[in-house]
Every structure is written in C-alpha cells, then in structure tokens.
Nucleic acid binder design. Structure first.
Lengths: 351, 351
DNA sequence: TTGAAAGCGCTAACAA
DNA sequence: TTGTTAGCGCTTTCAA
C-alpha cells in the first residue's frame, strides 16, 4: 500500500471508501467487509475490491474507524526517551506487541514533572490500551484513567484497583546492594539519589524505597546514613562526588540510586585515579554499558525488557476483558563487577 | 482535565460535546467554540461551558476532530528505540516541539527491514506532519508519501522534491577519521560496517558513504582496503574483532561505522589487554558514553540533537505552507580521545 | 451475498 | 452572540 506514487501534479485528495466503492462498482459496505476480512464476501467481490484498492492507493483512515469502534493501537507513555532503562522496557513492549494486531504509538512526556499531558493525549486518541511507564501522576488520577481505558503501569509500587502493575522489588534490590557492600567490609557508605522534589508520588516511587532500605540497614549496624540528593544535572553529580572524595575521611563506597548517577561517580573517581578498593561504586538498573569490561559497573539488574514484555501481555489480557488487578513483582539480581568487591577490573594498559 | 476520578461503579460512557451542551444548556456549536477558543463567545457563555466541561470531565476526541480537520499532532518514525544516536535526534525533536501546539507521537519500526508500516501508520492517523528518522524505504516511496503529508527525512542522503532532508556530511566525517589515523601513522586499517543486506537504499545510506571514503583514501595511498561486514549481532562483532587480532600481522587501527560496533571492538581489545597504541579504535556518532573517561572513545560527533531540532523546525515551516525542498547538511566534528592517537587514556588503577 | 441508511463526535457554514 | 444543520469516512444493522 501507498506503493504507487500518486500522479504528478497537484496533490489529489486521498481516496476514501466511497471512491473505492465507485471504482469497483460496489457498495461502501462491501468494501468495508473486504478490508476487514469480514464474513460473507464472494471471491469475485474480494478480487474486484482488492484491485480497486490497489489502483486508488486507498488506505482506511484510523479516525473514521475510531468513530465506530477500535483504533487497533496501544499507547505507551514514556518519561524520557534518552533513559536506557526506560528504553529497555520499551524494547520488551515492542517485541511482545510485534506479533499482535496492535500498532504501537509512544507519547513522550514533554514535562517531566507532570505526566498527565502524555497520558491524556493517548486517551484522546482512543487507544485500545495504555502502558504507563513510571508515570509522574498521582495514583488516584491513574485510577480515574484506568476506569476509562485498559491500563498497565510499570515501575511504581502502586496497589491499584483498576489497572495492573509491573514493578521491580526495590527493597530486595537495595538489600542485595547493601549486603554486598557490608560483606566487602564497607562501613562508610553514602547513598546518592534523586532530589525528592522531582517525585510526584514519593510513597510509590522506587527511589525512596531504595533510600529507606539503605537508611534502615545502616542504622541496624549502628552506622549513620549519609544521603545526598541530586537534582538530575550531571554537573551536580560530579561536583558532589568530588566533594565526597575531598572529605577528611571520605566514604569507601557509594550506592547510587540508578546507573546514570553511578556512571557520573565513576567519571570522577577515574579522573582522580581512585580505585575500586578505595571507593566502591554500585548502581541500579544494569544499563547495557555497565557490563562493558572498561566500565565493569556493579549494579542491580531489574530485567527491564522482561518487565516490558510482561506489561504488554497483561495489557492484552485486560483488553481481552480481564477485570481484576494483577501485580507482577520482579526479583532483581545483583551483578558484581569491577567497581566493587572482589572482581578485578579489566584495565586498559598504558598507551 | 481528567482530574475527577469518574464516579465509582460501572464505567460510564465518556462525555461528548453533546453532553456538555445539554449540561450547560447551550448548543454544541457554542461548546465547540469555547474549547477551540474561537471568536464570538460571551464571558458568561465561556464560564457556563467551562464549568460543565469540568463537571463532566469532558475531553474532545481527536478522532472526531480529525474528521473535520487537523489532529494537531506530529509523528516521528524511529528505526530503533534502543539506539542512542536515534534517541539523541528524538531528544532534539521533543525539545523543539515542546513549545509548539503539536503533540508528538512516535511510531517505532517493528520490522527493521521495511519501515513502511510505521510511516503508513502515522499517515493513517492523519498526523499533520512526519519526521522520518533513517527510514528504511525507497526514496520514490517517500516522495509518494510526501505528496500527501508534510515530511522531513533525517539521516539519508536523498535529493528529494517534496520533502526536506537533514543529514550529516558523512564524506567529511569519514575523511576526518581517516586523516586522523593516517596522521597517527597507521596503515593497516580495517573498516567494520553494517552488512549491506540490511540496507534498503544503499545509495543514500550513510554507511556505504563512509565505506566509500575509507576505500578511496586507502587506495590513494596504495593501501589495500580491508572491509568487514557485520550483520548487527554483538556476538558477531566480538568474534570478528578477535579474529582480526589473531592474524599474523593484525591491523593497527579499526574504523567502525558506528559507535556500537566500536564499543564491541573495545570490549575485545580490553579483554585481551591490547592497548590503543597497538590497536586504535575510532567510532562514529559520539554516543554519550563515548566521552566517559573509562571509555574515551575517539569518534565523530554528528550533532544528533541539533539535527533533530532542525528537522522539527523545517517540518513546522512545511506545515506552514513552504513547498520547496530544503537540505540541511551538518558538518561533523572529530573527537579524539583515548582509543586513538595521542591523548593518553585515563586508566583505572590496580584494585 | 450484497446494498441502503443511520450514526459515531466533532467543526464550520449559515441563519437567527 | 448563539443555534441549526450538514457533513467528514467509516462500520453496522437491517433489508433485499
């Protein structure tokens, strides 16, 4: 379809179902049946219509179809397009939906502070279902949306009534990190995390959970928590980590709320020539580059791609009619690499 | 909007403009005027209608609007969501369109071999304009599409009549790389690039261009080109690079068609403990991680984000009525880092 | 198996 | 300033 370049000259009006019907000498209803593969069309009819569709380069308008029923599309709301963890989730969704009859559209959050616009935009387009990835909206608002359209939320610790949730077990993940650092003998451990102001729902966001675990595990051992909040600018992170290492008794380990923060910290320690035994760094998310031998970042694998695929499956079930709210909690896995613990770094030799 | 969770109980039919009109005791036309901010509404009318809209939680359907005119949305077709260069372009588009009245939707390519589905899907949704990022479709097909909807293409060396092009100067970029390697004294230089089978339009694709420059510059100096094609799997790349380094007289430099290939090559050389003086690696794209001190990948900055922003500007102009085809060619810049030439690597100290 | 006709929710002429 | 009305392109009864 759309194969034939339309005739040269002024752009002609795109063909409608009416045009096809006339060209084929049949009714609009007949054409509609053919394009929908509906029951009750003779082979002869199908052939005629198919030929006319090709001849006129006809494509049904989604909008007109939407007026009468489904759009056969699923919408994904994404907080940032340049965040590797989110794109992993998206990859899982894309693959899972590839075989389905649904077309995927993605609405990026324009305003990172409030995600309502992107979700509303999908709703306004009458998508058949929505996957909301780490949506920056209150849970009550999501419930309202979920009452109107099948919805699956990924990445927040909600306990909803009208939508499904796919989320990582952040308590377990943070515990893995802290146990690993304690086992390696660290006591002066700082935690670097997102500034709380950028959180819409601190109660359900993963990062405050990781923080909470960090704090309680430190206190359990009689250690004073040392928390640093970052307002998301890379410069800020580097500055902060430099300050940390400048202290009279600097921390020996850094637990970063996500890999992007961890990578920034590694920039600083690399530039200063501080090694992993002196200053361990552990991240969260296991972005692809973390396993590169030149980086070797210890981190927590959240299985983002599987989370995305699961979200897509749940949404299809929901579109199929399921009503009860399901929760899928993914167990994270610690990946110990060069930036912490025992595994020796693969080093670049002198050049 | 969508603020009030709808009443508990069975999901009620979403409000239409008719419902709002009845609730406010006015005509549908009046409501339409209010929501479009059209001329000729009294303050009193506006207030009544606005109140009813809020009370009923009304949102106009894009589909119904599309039947009469514009959808106020711009569509972006994206080949892969997990490619950092493409997401840079996307970031530029998102930022540029943020202030505009247009909502953005992204259609990811499901099938990397043919990109028609994603573009057709956007067309079928009657978007007001399309940005096609590295579309895997023949140029003639794009021309046909461009006759029907304002279109800007990013990343292919087309010379179109009905759409605009934003592209990097790949000849110049490849030349920068080769001159840099020659200047550093290399002669045994291999070029690793995508398998040609995955290219729809080899004539306009950036990678064959870079390859062509590589070949001709090698020959100009009496050197035999040494080209290796990869079918995009990471395993394949690692295997290939290992073979290269196993040769009796291995190459001293590798020019990778894009950074992802370069990073894979660096994995292998790092694991084998081969340093940059022995085996230089230069990539293309300047993905964010390339500048990390632990990676220090020499590469070519294509200014992806600016390309995206420019594409968005051109599209807005085109939607505004411009007809002539514009081309914007971006001059790339070489970033020399640790993996090639003189800059010493920042190394991780022994741990 | 095929066709006629109603109607989805909205906008834009036009009338009042 | 406000309301009436005629479609936009499709799907879906319901008749033929």
């Amino acid at each position: 379809m759309l194969d034939n370049a339309s005739p040269p000259g002024p752009p002609t009006r795109a063909a409608t179902i009416e045009d096809v019907a006339q060209h084929a000498g049949v009714s609009k209803a007949a054409v509609s049946k053919v394009i929908r593969d509906a029951y009750g069309v003779s082979d002869q009819m199908r052939e005629r219509v198919t030929a006319s569709i090709a001849a006129l380069d006809y494509r049904p308008r989604v909008a007109a179809r939407a007026m009468r029923g489904s759009t056969a599309t699923i919408g994904v709301q994404l907080p940032q397009v340049d965040n590797e963890f989110f794109t992993r989730i998206l990859t899982g969704i894309v693959q899972e939906l590839n075989a389905s009859a649904y077309q995927l559209i993605i609405a990026p959050m324009a305003d990172p502070v409030s995600g309502t616009a992107a979700l509303e935009s999908l709703y306004d387009r009458q998508v058949d279902g929505i996957i909301a990835v780490a949506p920056a909206v209150p849970q009550a608002w999501l419930e309202g949306l979920a009452r109107r359209v099948p919805l699956v939320q990924v990445g927040q610790h909600d306990h909803p009534q009208h939508y499904d949730v796919v989320v990582g077990d952040d308590d377990a993940g943070a515990r893995l990190v802290m146990e690993h650092l304690f086992d390696s003998g660290h006591t002066r451990i700082v935690h670097v995390t997102n500034d709380e102001r950028i959180l819409v729902e601190p109660r359900t966001d993963p990062h405050p959970r990781r923080l909470r675990v960090y704090e309680s595990m430190m206190r359990e051992r009689g250690l004073e928590p040392d928390v640093i909040r970052i307002d998301s600018s890379d410069h800020d992170t580097r500055h902060t980590v430099n300050d940390l290492l400048d202290r009279a008794t600097p921390p020996t380990a850094l637990f970063a709320g996500h890999d992007s923060l961890a990578l920034s910290a590694l920039e600083v320690s690399a530039e200063r020539g501080v090694d992993a035994a002196e200053f361990a760094v552990v991240g969260y998310d296991d972005v692809p580059i973390a396993s590169h031998p030149l980086i070797g970042l210890s981190t927590v694998d959240q299985h983002g791609q599987e989370m995305g695929a699961t979200a897509a499956q749940l949404l299809l079930e929901r579109i199929g009619g399921r009503q009860d709210a399901q929760r899928r909690v993914f167990s994270p896995a610690l990946r110990v690499r060069a930036t912490s613990g025992s595994a020796p770094a693969v080093r670049r030799t002198e050049s």
